[in-house]
Structures are given as structure tokens and as C-alpha cells.
């Protein structure tokens, strides 16, 4: 039981960066832009947020700088694709290349006087806030129902994003732009302004997710491995799995987090429950790694085969809008 609750707690703790990245990408994609730069944006948010935050010894400063630095890359993406009408795939991939290059560049430049995770910064990260009542349940309660600030913040952001996209006028306009920008323009919506806002805020949220990822990795810089470790790409898959809905993204995060964490816990499970879970070790670990992508590919195919009347995928995704192109 202890192992199980520990497992579930890690699923949530290590899965939560995915939620930030996914919600950010949902906002971006709902306004009709496919941002393939998630990995790079998260990396920049992570390293800037971590470095400034640890220098200032404040979690708030770290989050602020992670958000702002990532939002700057979002601004760059928006400027290039919305105003300058550059190809979205190419721009997104370039942002990923640039972001990872920037991550290693800054990391290398600061590695000689690297500040290890500590002080007030670490205290806030480690501080688990229990959910009232639930966390008082004996044995499992403390592990299962108390998490650090990133978990709650992520869920709150996801819920806010849902309310914004599906319950407000601004969200309705955003979705209209994602479906048919020409019609939205004709209806008097400022297409470019909405795209800018969604892309920039979306990127900022991804940056906070990157910071969370970096802290989960213990904040130690390695010259060869980036903290983000491919999570940006999983997030792009998760957007599809969540059907472009931030609330489904919460559930999806835990499904994908489950497979990710299973890779780590597999050995422990097989040892503790040799009879019930012994078969786990027979499945190669690479299968778990590929599973998020396999599931997403299947979801993509199945949803297109079923041909719903209102498709989940924004119709105008990946296409730049130019008013005089009719």
C-alpha cells in the first residue's frame, strides 16, 4: 500500500510539468497556431527561472522569470508567424533548436558558479501542502493528498484555461479564429491581437512547466542532458490525447505520467508483487516510453475515422492567416 501511494504521488509530481506544457499548447493551438517549439520554450523558461530564482532565493521570482522569458520566445514565435507570416512548423522547430542551444549556452556559461538548489527556494519547492481532511487519512493520506505548490497551481491554471476557452467571450473568439480566421475577421474580431495574446500566454505557461521540470530534476546542470528531456514533445502528443480540452489534459497528464513513472517503479513493483505484477518486467521499457506516442497516433487515427460533425482539432491549425488571401 505504501509503495502504491508513493507511486501515485510520483505520477502526479513528475507528471505535472506536462500539464503546464499541454495547457500552454492548447491555448496556442486553439487560436490556430501549431507551436512546435514547446521543448525549446520550456528549456529557456527552466534555465532562466532557475538561475534568477536561485540567485534571488525566491520561488515567486523564479516563476515570474520562467514565465516572462518563455513568453518572450512566444512573442518571437507570434511575431514571426502572425506578423511576418513565416511557416509555423519551421519557426517552431527553429525555436526548439534555439531554445536548447540557449539552455546549454547559459548553463555552460554559469556552470562554474552554479547555485545548487537550496535555501528558501528549495523550502517552497519541498513544502507539501495537504488537502484539508483528505490528507489526514491514516497511512495513505499524507503521501497521496499533499503536494507542492506546482501541482495545485498547474491544476488551477488548467481549470482557468478551460473557463477562459469555453466559458468566456474572449475564449469563444479565440476558438473562432482557430476554426476560421477569415470569418472571425469578418465578424470584427482582431485576429492578430488574439493570436498574439494566446501564443504569448501559452508560451509563458510552458515556461513555468519547464521550471517545475528543472526543479524535479534537482536543479543540477548536466552538460549533455537537458532537463526537459523530450517532455515538450510528449506535451504536443498530449494535446491531441486531451482533445484540445484543458480539463481532459489534467486526466491525460496522469495517464501519460503513469507510463513515465512506471518505467522507474517497474523494478520495485516486480520485487514487491512477484506474482501479481511479475509480467511487468517482460515488457521492454522502451515500450512504455513509446506508449504515449502510440496512444496518441491511435487517438488521431480513430478520431479522424469517426469523422465527428465538429472535429476536436482546430480546423485552421498550422495555417497562417493573411487577410488579402481569399
Amino acid at each position: 500500500m505504501e509503495i502504491l501511494s508513493l507511486f501515485i504521488a510520483s505520477v502526479i509530481l513528475y507528471g505535472i510539468p506536462l500539464l503546464y506544457a499541454t495547457v500552454g499548447e492548447i491555448m496556442t493551438e486553439k487560436s490556430g497556431s501549431l507551436n512546435l517549439g514547446v521543448e525549446g520554450i520550456m528549456a529557456v523558461g527552466a534555465i532562466i527561472g532557475y538561475l534568477v530564482g536561485s540567485k534571488a532565493d525566491s520561488m515567486f521570482v523564479a516563476m515570474l522569470f520562467a514565465f516572462v522569458s518563455a513568453a518572450m520566445l512566444g512573442l518571437l514565435f507570434a511575431f514571426l508567424t502572425v506578423t511576418l507570416k513565416a511557416n509555423q512548423n519551421v519557426t517552431g522547430l527553429t525555436i526548439t533548436t534555439f531554445g536548447l542551444g540557449f539552455y546549454f549556452f547559459i548553463g555552460k556559461a554559469c556552470s562554474s558558479n552554479w547555485i545548487t538548489l537550496g535555501g528558501n527556494f528549495k523550502k517552497v519547492y519541498d513544502n507539501s501542502i495537504g488537502i484539508p481532511l483528505l490528507s489526514k487519512i491514516p497511512v495513505v493520506g499524507e503521501k497521496l493528498f499533499s503536494y507542492n505548490i506546482f501541482v495545485y497551481l498547474g491544476i488551477v491554471i488548467a481549470i482557468l484555461a478551460f473557463i477562459y476557452l469555453y466559458k468566456t467571450k474572449a475564449g469563444l473568439k479565440t476558438r473562432a479564429i482557430g476554426e476560421n480566421p477569415a470569418a472571425a475577421d469578418a465578424a470584427g474580431i482582431n485576429v492578430n491581437a488574439y493570436k498574439y495574446i494566446n501564443i504569448i500566454i501559452g508560451a509563458g505557461i510552458m515556461g513555468v512547466g519547464g521550471l517545475c521540470m528543472g526543479l524535479n530534476m534537482g536543479g543540477t546542470f548536466e552538460g549533455s542532458n537537458c532537463w526537459i528531456n523530450g517532455y515538450g514533445w510528449i506535451a504536443i502528443a498530449l494535446v491531441i490525447f486531451a482533445k484540445w480540452n484543458p480539463l481532459w489534459a489534467i486526466a491525460g497528464t496522469f495517464v501519460f505520467g503513469f507510463f513515465n513513472t512506471l518505467q522507474v517503479y517497474r523494478g520495485i513493483f516486480v520485487e514487491s508483487f512477484p506474482n501479481a505484477l511479475g509480467w511487468l518486467s517482460k515488457i521492454p521499457i522502451e515500450f512504455y516510453k513509446a506508449l504515449p506516442f502510440i496512444i496518441t497516433a491511435l487517438v488521431l487515427i480513430i478520431s479522424s475515422v469517426r469523422k465527428k460533425k465538429v472535429p476536436d482539432e482546430p480546423t485552421a491549425i498550422g495555417l497562417n492567416y493573411y487577410r488579402e488571401d481569399r
Binding site: 501549431l34 512546435l36 512548423n89 514533445w233 504536443i236 502528443a237 491531441i240 521492454p284 521499457i285 522502451e286 515500450f287 516510453k289 513509446a290 506516442f293 502510440i294 496518441t296 497516433a297 488521431l300 487515427i301 479522424s304 475515422v305 469523422k307 482539432e313 491549425i317 498550422g318
Partner: peptide, 30 residues
């Protein structure tokens, strides 16, 4: 899938990248 059902090729080919990558890693580890 693109031709038959109109599946988004951008996203599907993206997923296929990682399926191939982990297939490669699988051959490299087992």
C-alpha cells in the same frame, strides 16, 4: 490515413518519429 480519413499528417508523422526512435532504442537495449 491522410488520404482515406483526412488524418492530420503533421501530427501523425510527428508521433511516428518517436515510435521509430523507441524501436531503435529497443533494439539497442535488449
Amino acid at each position: 490515413f491522410k488520404v482515406k480519413f483526412g488524418t492530420s499528417e503533421t501530427l501523425l508523422t510527428l508521433m511516428f518519429n518517436y515510435i521509430a526512435l523507441y524501436l531503435l532504442v529497443f533494439f539497442g537495449q535488449n
